[in-house]
Amino acid sequence: MNWRRVVDRVSEILIFTVALVAIAIILLIFVYVGREAFPLVTGTAEGLTLASPFTAPYTWQPVSNTPKYNVFPLILGTIKVTIIAMLIATPLALAAALYTSEFAPRGLREWIKPAIELLAGIPSVVLGFFALMVLATWVQAGFHIAYRLNALTAGIALAFAIIPIIYTVSEDAMTAVPRLYREASLALGASKGQTAVRVILPAAIPGIAAAIVLGFGRAIGETMIVLMVSGNSATWSLDPTNPVRTLSATIAAEMAEAVFGSGHYRILFFIGSLLFIITGVLNWMGERFNRRLRERLFGSS
């Protein structure tokens, strides 16, 4: 009997099973979350249906004589905070990545990369605490905002959390651009700056797009920072200096209180499914976008 082949076969099956378990867990979570929200499809005892979270008035007042569960203010809040965070984090992270991969001396690069990646290891509750105690005061004084806790502060704090993700993935993509590209560009007389912006950046676009999508996913789902810094009021306005309440913070704040099986509980699980679907669709779109770009840039692979 050939032992090596047996060992190979067994480990292959083992690894396959582990991969299958991971997929199964994600599926089961989705099934569970969906099942808890399902009674909304048929209508709950309180008369809530799938349409209830989307019908006027545009307020979120779950503890009230007539509870109002409109999710639009929460969706708007999530989008506001996420967009602010992305607008701040993307240029900073990409510039830092371009610098470390193209301009930084070797010795420096070996310091910068781990240092920024260390930022990803900071627990979000610590980032949130810093933002709550220090950053909020600076932002309020700097922009003369009436509200100490607002979407802008939350967005800036959130940017700290997603910079390392966008940075690491896009930096890897830039470093992975073949040396030949650089050498060819320099040989044609392009400066280092021209090479970085016109050659390296376009060549690394698929990786950068993936980095941005990953950062976006993290920003939408991030809970602790926004729970601590956003002020948690479900406002129906576009003003970034108003306090906001996000989908994820709402689940975190209210799930412990919601009576098991009540309408409020169902709606919170519905919000959970909504977040699940949003991040799922985003990831899928990112993947498609990525593949298409890769095909266009490098031919079908």
Partner: peptide
């Protein structure tokens, strides 16, 4: 008196 809080009421943990 059981009315709802203002929209801009900030809920803190």
């Amino acid at each position: 008196k059981n009315a709802d809080y203002a929209e801009k009421y900030q809920a803190l943990p």
